[in-house]
Amino acid sequence: MADLLNAFAIAGKAFFGFQAIFFALLAIGINVHFGYTGLLNFGQIAFAMLGGFGIAISVSLWGLPFWVGVIVGVLASVVLALLLGLPTLRLRADYLAIVTIATAEGLRLVFRSVSATPVTGGTRGLSAFNRDFIALAPWDTGRRYDLIGTTWSGSELWVVTIGWILVALCSLLVWALMRSPWGRVVKAIREDEDAVRSLGKNVYAYKMQALVLGGVFGAFGGMVYAVGTGSAIPDQYQNANTFLAYAALILGGAARVLGPVIGSMLLLFILQFADTGLRSLIANGVIPAELLSSTDVAQLRYVLVGIGLMLLLVFRPQGIFGDRREVMLDAR
């Protein structure tokens, strides 16, 4: 019982941890792309990587202040969105999907390549760029703090605080946009581009704006991750993260402001709870060691998440926040 409570506490930390923020920001971006505008972006992690490395390279390599690094990261993701969008947004939705997935994988391979090592640090990546940021914390970052049964280091707490403020601001921005006529146009584009064109809206421009906006959210996610781990390593930015963010979005409910946020928190909670829970059950002999060893747990928790998502799609296809009527319209 105590083990279970302990697992619950550790999972609770994951619920609020910087990885949940990372996925939440990725998923908010994907929500703008896929949930509202109907753009299939399968390479959201590329934006995150540019965000993370924007800070890392600016600070570690060029010796610029931290905040300049943030701006560099945002600008880099804007440029990437423009480069991806220019050729593909005039075409059918699947072309963007192909180009983004290839870019995300290609960009990571370039960043970890030997020839890029002088800039990106290659496979070892870059570190020691978040000192300025941590120093801004109003509390002692050297100490450890106990909060609702979990222990946080001071710097961790600072990253998480700023991270959640960022998530709140991004959600607020999405909310404000989606209730405006701009949001109406964007949602209409998701439904039928040609109908929107025939009503005098420049569909291409709207899709580009949405792509850039979601990409910048993704870049923020990458920055939180880089600052949270204290290092920027190309292999941290595997494209599997994009699909986990999609899973979080579907779990929370697409085209809902809080869907991606709650979805990411729950996803991380379930992953962490399954992990610690199963490990403690194995350690206590509740699950026989010959049936399941603790090394299998890391894989098994994703199986559990997969089963959970399947059940969700069968019994609640709209996700947690979605509107069932809205989802059922597609079935017609």
Binding site: A176, W182, R184, E191, A195, L199, D330
Partner: peptide
């Protein structure tokens, strides 16, 4: 081409021209 997951009224409002709220910043 009815825009299925928009309400009837939202469909109608989309038709109006020269809406200032359709620009990103003014929205």
């Amino acid at each position: 081409k009815a825009l299925s997951r928009l309400t009837v009224l939202q469909n109608m409002l989309l038709g109006a021209q020269g809406q200032s709220g359709e620009s990103f910043l003014r929205a």
